[in-house]
Computed example of a mutant assay.
Amino acid sequence: MVTIRLTPQAQEQAPPVRRAGLWWRWTRAVTLGEIAGFSVPAVVAALALGAGPLAQLAVILLAGIAEGAILGLAQAYALRTALPTIATRDWVRATAGGAAIAWTVGALPIMLGESLLRWPPAVLALLAMTLLAAMGLLQWRLLRQHARRAWWWVPATAGSWLAALAAFALVTSPLWQEGQPVFLVIAIGVLGGSVMAFTVAALTGAALVGLLARPGRAVPPTPTQVSGTR
């Protein structure tokens, strides 16, 4: 007699992560993806100079979502070898959603101007944390199914974006001046975006390698287990 039982199979250990290979794949793909993605809001913001606050907010928000989608595609490509079970569509949605939240918060100074500085410091700190952590938080909801202590991805990505934004400001602040032609404003923005892209790619790549290299990482179980008796 042959008996077939449909039971969850014990979780298997995922194959070990090749650290150097994953870091380089991630850093290269994310750098290029963020350069391409950030070029969209950089160009849109330059073209929207002189428009009303509501119009600027609308176009920058849409451009920010486009940036997140492009970045999400690049990150999903880099993740294929390490976490092939994460659907590209889900990762792109999470990344674009995080970008939408971050760009909404980042656009508040356009809408409110100096009045924003009169808000309570605790509220401003919460907004800053939301801007930095939104993307990592939505991505964490996918990573937690595949890696132990995946919550570490949230502060790691927030810190990476903080360093990347600081690098962007260090490059662009001395170069941007009032009255510059649009092409020069765009060129400076793209230059700063390239520095920002490499910074966030390298730092998040290191965080990802460390996260996936932790012992006990498991792959999803197979749906059936067949056993036979006679």
Rank of each mutant, 00 (worst) to 15 (best):
A187D: 00
L162W: 00
A125K: 04
A134H: 02
I35H: 02
R19Y: 07
G189N: 08
L124N: 07
P84W: 02
E34T: 08
V185M: 06
A169V: 12
W24Q: 11
T27V: 06
G136I: 05
G228R: 15
V200Q: 05
W119C: 04
L165W: 10
L32K: 04
P215W: 03
G210S: 06
T157A: 06
T95W: 03
V2Q: 14
M135E: 02
F198N: 06
V185L: 14
Q56H: 01
Q56L: 06
L108D: 11
L32A: 09
G159C: 11
A187Q: 05
A207S: 14
G193N: 03
V190P: 02
A100S: 06
S115E: 10
T199S: 03
A45P: 02
L131M: 09
P8S: 08
S194A: 15
I35P: 01
G189C: 04
I101N: 08
P220S: 01
R214F: 11
R89Q: 12
Q75W: 00
A76P: 05
G192N: 05
L62A: 12
T7D: 10
T81S: 15
R141A: 13
V209H: 04
A163V: 10
T222S: 09
P16Y: 06
G33W: 00
W26H: 09
A150T: 07
Q177F: 02
I110S: 12
L47Y: 12
A36L: 14
R80L: 07
R28W: 06
P220M: 07
V43F: 10
A218W: 05
L175K: 06
F183P: 07
I86S: 10
Q11I: 09
G33Q: 05
A166N: 09
P16F: 07
L49P: 08
A69V: 11
M129W: 14
G33T: 01
Q225H: 14
W151C: 05
A94I: 01
G21Y: 07
T222M: 11
Q139D: 01
Q13T: 12
L49K: 14
G97C: 08
T88S: 10
P53L: 03
A78H: 08
L137T: 15
T81E: 14
V226E: 10
A164F: 09
A87N: 06
S115V: 11
L32G: 06
A102V: 01
L143M: 11
L170N: 09
A51S: 15
L6C: 09
P41N: 03
Q139N: 00
A63N: 04
Q139A: 00
I101V: 15
A74I: 12
A206N: 15
F168Q: 12
V195F: 07
L175V: 06
G72D: 01
L124W: 10
L116H: 03
E178P: 08
L175P: 02
T204Y: 01
L79H: 12
L143P: 01
A156M: 07
P181E: 09
E178M: 12
L165D: 00
P221M: 04
A94E: 00
S194T: 14
A46W: 04
V226P: 09
V219A: 14
